[in-house]
C-alpha cells in the first residue's frame, strides 16, 4: 500500500476518539482482503490484495453500514478533500454556521468525520429524512443534521464576545499548544467533552469494569533489575534447577 493511499484511507484521529476502540480492531473491522500470497517460495512473500479506496461517510468505518456502503466490488467516485494542517474542531466546541438556512446561528459540535473535514452541529443545518413504511400515510419523517465543512462552512466562536472568528494555533509561555482567536487574541480553550469517550466522561471519572486491574495496581513497581534472563528468573522462583551443559550447536 502506497503512502498517499494510506493517507487517504486512514481513519482520522478525532473520528475514532469517541468510540475508544483499539486501532487494531478498527483495521480488522475495516479491511477487505481479497487475496493473500500463500506461504512458500514467492517473489513477493507478503503480498496482499485488498480494498484501498474507501468512501467515508457519516457511518463509522467499523460499522456494518460502512461495510455495506463499501461492499466488495462497489466503487464510487473519488471525493476531493481539502488538506488541513491541524484539526481544530472538537466535540463540545461552540461554532457559528456560515452557510445555509441556519446561517449566523451558533451551536455545539457533536460529531466529527475528520476524513471528510465534516462536523455535525447539534440541531442546526437540519433536513427531514423520510422513512418509508409501506403505505404513504404511515411514512415517518426524522429530522437529522447534515454535515458541514470545517474549511469554510463553520467558524469557531470567540468566548469573549461570542462572535465567529478565524483561529490560529500558537504556543503559550509554558509551551502548550492552544487555539487563539485571530480577531481578539484570546485563547479558545479546548472543551472537556473533547476527551470524552463512550466509556467515560473524563479519564479520572472512569468506572472500573469487573475484569479491570485497579489504577494503583497498574502503577505499582515490582520490577527489580537483576543479571538474569526472564527464563532464569522464572526457573529460580519456581525452584527448577538446570545444570546440564547443552551440546554445541550450529546456526546457519
Amino acid at each position: 500500500m502506497r503512502l498517499t493511499q494510506i493517507l487517504l484511507s486512514r481513519v482520522g484521529e478525532w473520528s475514532k476518539q469517541y468510540a475508544n476502540l483499539p486501532d487494531r480492531y478498527i483495521k480488522r473491522a475495516m479491511e477487505q482482503v481479497y487475496w493473500r500470497n500463500p506461504k512458500g517460495i514467492q517473489y513477493r512473500p507478503s503480498t496482499v490484495i485488498q480494498r484501498k479506496k474507501f468512501r467515508f461517510t457519516m457511518n463509522r468505518p467499523w460499522s456494518h453500514q460502512f461495510y455495506e456502503q463499501n461492499a466488495p466490488g462497489r466503487l464510487r467516485k473519488k471525493v476531493f478533500v481539502e488538506p488541513i494542517k491541524k484539526w481544530s474542531f472538537f466535540r463540545g466546541d461552540r461554532v457559528e454556521v456560515l452557510v445555509g438556512k441556519d446561517k449566523g446561528k451558533q451551536g455545539i459540535v457533536k460529531y466529527i468525520v475528520q476524513e471528510r473535514n465534516w462536523v455535525i452541529v447539534e440541531g442546526l443545518n437540519c433536513h427531514l429524512r423520510r422513512m418509508k413504511r409501506g403505505d404513504e400515510s404511515l411514512d415517518l419523517y426524522i429530522q437529522s443534521e447534515a454535515p458541514l465543512l470545517v474549511t469554510d462552512q463553520v467558524a469557531l466562536v470567540d468566548p469573549s464576545d461570542l462572535k465567529a472568528t478565524p483561529i490560529e494555533w500558537r504556543y503559550t509561555e509554558s509551551g502548550e499548544s492552544v487555539r487563539v482567536s485571530v480577531r481578539t487574541g484570546r485563547i479558545i480553550p479546548i472543551p472537556a467533552t473533547a476527551e470524552e469517550t463512550i466509556d467515560y466522561k473524563s479519564k479520572s471519572t472512569y468506572k472500573e469494569q469487573p475484569k479491570d486491574t485497579g489504577a494503583n495496581e497498574v502503577a505499582e513497581i515490582t520490577f527489580e533489575p537483576a543479571l538474569k534472563t526472564f527464563e532464569m528468573d522464572i526457573m529460580e522462583s519456581m525452584g527448577i534447577k538446570e545444570d546440564r551443559i547443552p551440546k554445541k550447536t550450529y546456526w546457519y
Binding site: 497498574v218 502503577a219 505499582e220 513497581i221 515490582t222 520490577f223 527489580e224 538474569k228 526472564f230 528468573d233 522464572i234 522462583s237
Partner: peptide, 12 residues
C-alpha cells in the same frame, strides 16, 4: 510502559 515496571514472575 505498564509492563516494564512489573517483575518477571508477575509477567509470567
Amino acid at each position: 510502559d505498564d509492563l516494564r515496571i512489573k517483575s518477571n514472575p508477575d509477567l509470567h
